[in-house]
């Protein structure tokens, strides 16, 4: 169709990077606000003064009273307060409800926007927002490079349904322990928190170790293994996005069966054979790589069933039929 949906993948990278930068900026703002509130510029060390000056130049055009005005945006991708509006990851709500065995209505409302967005766009959080996705995709690229220079990288496959099991076990363990366990193993929650720890509290915590382990798992055991097989949030978003309204579909008449889409897909889905399913996170990597623009967004709550090989495939098939006939 139009060639500019090919650029969506670039837009997605920009979005991921922007989210990551915001996650770095917010702790800096928090520290800066504390310095402002202390009214003790003279007592800061030279490096702290430098930090203060940089933050002042950055924020000065937007706020008149940094101590209070900068409170407008707080939090991470796990849970945030944006201009008084509270937004939380649906997994946080599932975790809290199962840990507390009770429902706190204002918190349910916090997940409303993400749930609606997921019902329409599917696992868009995973592809476009999750700060871990940025690092995991960079990690996939690192793996591809390692593979080219001849170093062994993991390419094992497991059952993708494993993550639903992780989600279920997490819910049950949260019920038993009375503690929101997902927060400890869910990368988007970990990353925001660890960046805050590193910037505002002086060092990474145990979560950084866990996240590095998941990076190594992806590198050494299975490509994008954590998102594919383990992530409980991914599982929840997949379930919510099963009947998503907007989905990527293949135009069989334009497809030439080159399989680039299937090879590039981070979630081992099979766009070339119309195999999208609930786990597609609308990341548009397949659209960007398709040489014949055979992939497009469609409004439908169900995938098209397998349409057979593309036009080039039909061409071959006809050739094969002709000698026999």
């Amino acid at each position: 169709m139009t060639p500019h949906i090919r650029h969506l993948n670039k837009l997605r990278w920009a979005s991921l990077t922007a989210v990551f930068l915001v996650l770095i900026l917010l702790p800096c703002i928090s520290v800066y606000q504390a310095y402002v509130a202390a009214h003790a510029y003279d007592l800061l060390t030279p490096s702290e003064k430098e930090f203060y000056d940089v933050m002042e130049t950055l924020t000065d055009p937007f706020v008149s009273d940094p101590e209070h005005d900068l409170d407008a945006v707080k939090g991470t991708t796990w849970s945030a307060t944006v201009f008084g509006l509270k937004v939380s990851d649906p997994l946080a709500v599932v975790g809290q409800v199962s840990a507390g065995l009770e429902i706190y209505p204002p918190f349910l409302l916090a997940a409303l926007i993400p749930v609606i967005v997921t019902l329409v766009f599917g696992r868009i959080f995973c592809g476009w927002i999750c700060p871990a996705t940025l690092l995991y995709e960079l990690n996939t690229n690192l793996a591809a490079w390692l593979h080219r220079v001849g170093l062994p990288v993991g390419n094992r496959h497991f059952d993708r349904r494993l993550k639903y099991l992780v989600l279920g076990i997490g819910v049950i363990l949260s019920m038993i322990t009375g503690s929101v366990l997902f927060a400890a193993i869910y990368p988007p929650a970990i990353i925001g928190r660890e960046i805050y720890y590193a910037i505002a509290l002086g060092g990474f915590g145990a979560g950084a170790v866990f996240f590095v382990l998941t990076l190594l798992f992806d590198l050494l055991v299975a490509r994008r293994g954590f998102c594919r097989y383990v992530c409980p949030g991914g599982a929840l978003y997949s379930l919510l996005g099963r009947y998503r309204v907007l989905r990527i579909q293949r135009k069989v008449e334009t497809c030439n069966d080159c399989a680039k889409c299937t090879a590039i897909c981070e979630f081992e889905l099979d766009p070339m054979r119309d195999g999208f399913g609930q786990e597609c996170n609308n990341c548009t990597a397949c659209i960007a790589v398709c040489p014949t623009d055979a992939l497009e967004f469609k409004v439908d709550i169900k995938d098209i069933t397998y349409q057979g090989p593309g036009h080039l495939g039909r061409h071959y098939r006809e050739q094969e039929i002709r000698p026999g006939a």
């Binding site: 960079l138 996939t140 690229n141 591809a144 490079w145 080219r148 399989a259 680039k260 090879a263 590039i264």
Partner: peptide, 28 residues
């Protein structure tokens, strides 16, 4: 680790897509 990730990605930006496709195919 972060530095290594970013450096490799910046330096190899162009080649990585074809590499990913190649390794993805071998993978399958």
């Amino acid at each position: 680790i972060m530095l290594a990730l970013i450096t490799v990605n910046l330096v190899q930006r162009k080649r990585l897509v074809s590499d990913k496709i190649r390794s993805g195919r071998q993978d399958r």
